[in-house]
Design a protein around this nucleic acid. Structure first.
Lengths: 113, 113
DNA sequence: CGCTCATATGCCGATATCGGCATGCGTCAA
DNA sequence: TTGACGCATGCCGATATCGGCATATGAGCG
């Protein structure tokens, strides 16, 4: 085996700090590649590659505009991330942060299966 | 350069499907390594390695219990993921899904910087 | 057409990752 | 102490990833 199939997955796409930065920048609207590269301090090919990953998982869309290619946000895919992480919300809320977890664990002494 | 520093980051830790499964399982309480491995259909060393990553980013804690080692959830680190993804919420809500994005983009014809 | 700008792609090197296997280490019981 | 169990670690092979560089592709312009 090896490295398992991670690509093509939204969670993997946002695992990269620079890709998250791109998404944040795109919240303010469509942007051409060069501008993204410049603002984030990366090379143009670097930006293109990250954008490609984001496009493949559906988080951005591109549109031709003359010589430029504008990338825009399509954040619907982030909804699953939000919902998945939200499934743990009670574990970080004050009520459950400590005591809750402790009590829960006690309930599970039947951990044999 | 190479592969950039991704490890030691919560986003990276949850990029792995199996690690997400572990976290979900741990929502019901502490579990020993072998049980996790069995339930998720992975080998014991495999489980240990994923648990190590999760421990290093602070998403799980371990506790010795006789011969066993119990792993428990500490999901506070997922809060940042939830909040980050929540920052895009308006982009997937019905109101903004299409029209909103379109209008926003129009506002940014001043995209020269 | 030939040139230039904007972007994508290909190739490379360095490295990180994942799974499998063998083995080390600690704990408990006889 | 010896042995069994539970888990961690080390090593390996296959592969994926990221950054950098050079280059291909495409659009607009003169």
């Amino acid at each position: 085996m090896a490295r398992a199939a991670t690509t093509s997955d939204v969670f993997n796409a946002i695992a990269e700090p620079q890709r998250r930065e791109i998404l944040v920048l795109l919240r303010t609207g469509e942007r051409p590649v060069t501008e993204l590269a410049r603002k984030l301090g990366m090379t143009q090919p670097g930006a293109s590659k990250h954008l490609r990953v984001l496009r493949e998982v559906g988080l951005v869309r591109d549109r031709r505009a003359g010589k430029q290619r504008l990338y825009g946000l399509d954040a619907r895919g982030l909804r699953s991330v939000h919902e998945w992480s939200g499934g743990f919300e009670r574990f970080w809320s004050d009520r459950f942060d400590r005591l809750g977890r402790y009590v829960e664990d006690l309930n599970h002494e039947r951990r044999g299966e």
